[in-house]
Design a binder for these strands. Structure first.
Lengths: 355, 355
DNA sequence: AAGAAAAATAAAAACGTTTTTATTTTGATG
DNA sequence: CATCAAAATAAAAACGTTTTTATTTTTCTT
């Protein structure tokens, strides 16, 4: 049962030279054959492939890398907010990584992860990746309304796919969630339920999707012919702490909100915590609609209505797009915006009292 | 303000040859000087460093890699359970990655992440990393009682650090949490509070730390001279779903538990969800003690008593140990077991009714 | 001051590829 | 069957390092 042991120093891995010796062809021919070059005769190609298979030849990534100048790395920038203590944050990133790695499976590319602490760190890291050729392509998120990374990479013609769109009109590959739509839908639903004082728990305004959500929020009010409760928009990091504190602050207002639109599951948990400690009950005193990408809202007590978008799907698309982008495909063709699906778990009209 | 633009194709990055031309020394001397070899005269060493700094020389990783046979990659195996749908899972891994990357900062090593779907995939990936030299060192977690990855890597003398210990007596670098101790402490606390029917929500038994926790659980009962409620031990994946379902099942028993010891925050959330939907109140009908590594338990309603261990610290230690291990340090010297700290948020004796 | 030893530097080879250029073999043409 | 073009293969160079070996320069000894 135990794994096959080879305690003895195993024979050095076969190289292209090994194949040359075995088959009698020159290393040049071997190389071309393995790359499926049309200049090598089909019959010898087959011979060489067979030999390669027999000795278990695996191209040496380092040799390839040196010669071609490529690194065969797809880099992902992973933000970790050096937030207060260690907060529940960035949890969905494992899903992104999982998705990207799925897309890369079976290709020559490996995924390298670069942790970044803040926006400036992100730019610096991106620049280093480009300048030093640390990777052949780049994936990143947390897109700012005016994101210097996008500027840099577009300018340098470096292949990348962003998770999120900036507010500049540039041609670049991206994957995004339709935040304007989601915020609109959530707000409209609450308005239809009779709510008028609606709080929006939003990320910092320099983030592009914060603006998207603000837009959707405002549009819902506009379409309903009602003045938007813009005084109930709070902005901060997306931590649980922030969610909790926001609720505590907002409910002290002269005209407190009767409903909350939340940005992600960690903030939502904080909001629920805040409501709980103030003795307010979801579905009775207030309504909450969340956005969720790790499918956790079902387990909150009570379960809450959610716009759900499995983030791994975005990750997979990011990876696929990056592969195509590295092949030279036009970025204009590589764009996709996902609409989350609504999962109704509450009536969202204070148990019917509002309509 | 805008970033310095260089639209023109920038001059090729300076190499060791560039430095040779500038300084007039041979590339051999340049190389040795940059490596701080003692054979080169201090004065020329300084000259060469100065030149290197002036032209912004950065060693080409690919060239180094090819020549030395090293990859300068520290690989991390990241498990993603292809669990039902997309569950809240592996969330703490961003902290691990963050910690590892912190440790690697300023070194020549980069972090590459390999996603693995299950144990078999983990072994296969580890083998590929070793055989193809995809990395110079490896970090992984989810250690089984008998873990083939540890066997493999010890056998091949491949540098690695495991997050967790297997049950075999082998010499290998590792970082762990004292799960036996934590489970014992939690159980003892509940026993002292008067609980007798205590449920243990545990991971699958093939995981090494599941056994550790079982040991601690049993020891607490033994020390109290009470028969352990082993019939209340449930085992499964660590999903929120599992936590919820476990509660629902357990509370239907003839002699249901009055207290729960939970394994991680995601399971705890499920447990709380289950209790909530059965109308049981924490601190009134049942007590819950959790283990937490992302500091989220404070936000559950009500906040619950927790053994807390910031996982990023483990990650940092993993990275530090791996660096030393790759330098050839004796694995015996590279072991650390952390004891989480108890954060008391509940009396854990059913509001005093039990003592 | 000659010679040897030590120190400093240079030259050359190697790592495993890909690519450009050169050579050989094959096939077609008249 | 001789000639030439096309096809197939081989040789050589290159990518940027490190390391081994060789050479030059300096320092020490007597």
């Amino acid at each position: 049962m135990a794994a096959h042991m080879h305690k003895t120093r195993r024979t050095p891995a076969p190289t292209i030279k090994t194949l040359a010796e075995i088959t009698g062809y020159s290393i040049a021919t071997i190389s071309k054959a393995l790359r499926d070059s049309p200049v090598v005769a089909p019959v010898t190609r087959d011979l060489i492939f067979k030999a390669a298979r027999e000795v278990g030849y695996q191209a040496n990534a380092r040799g390839m890398a040196l010669r071609t100048g490529k690194s065969f790395q797809a880099a992902v920038l992973m933000p970790v907010t050096a937030a207060r203590d260690y907060e529940w944050d960035g949890v969905e990133y494992t899903q992104v990584l999982s998705g990207v790695s799925q897309a890369l499976e079976g290709t020559d590319y490996r995924m390298s992860v670069h942790v970044i602490r803040d926006a400036a760190d992100g730019v610096e890291t991106a620049r280093r990746i480009v300048d030093q050729g640390l990777a052949d392509g780049l994936i990143f998120s947390g897109i700012l309304a005016d994101d210097p990374r996008i500027d840099l990479l577009v300018d340098q013609h470096f292949p990348f796919v962003s998770m999120g769109r900036c507010r500049k009109d540039l041609d670049y590959a991206h994957v995004d969630i339709d935040n304007e739509w989601a915020a609109h839908a959530a707000t409209a639903r609450l308005l239809a339920g009779g709510h008028r004082r609606i709080a929006l728990v939003n990320p910092e305004r320099r983030l592009s999707y914060a603006l998207d959500r603000l837009d959707g929020f405002a549009r819902a009010f506009r379409e309903a012919g009602i003045a938007a409760s813009v005084d109930l928009v709070v902005e901060g990091d997306l931590s649980t702490h922030f969610g909790r504190q926001s609720v505590i602050d907002l409910l002290q207002a002269a005209e407190p909100p009767t409903a909350f639109v939340c940005i992600n599951e960690s903030t939502t948990l904080g909001v629920l915590s805040g409501l709980g400690s103030l003795g307010r009950q979801v579905g009775v005193d207030v309504d909450v609609i969340a956005y969720d990408d790790i499918n956790v809202s079902a387990y909150f007590t009570p379960p809450i209505t959610t716009f759900y978008q499995p983030i791994e799907v975005l990750g997979r698309t990011l990876g696929q797009f990056l592969l195509k982008r590295m092949e030279g495909e036009d970025p204009k063709a590589l764009r996709q915006v996902f609409r989350p699906t609504l999962i109704e778990r509450q009536p969202d009209n204070l148990g019917g009292r509002l309509v």
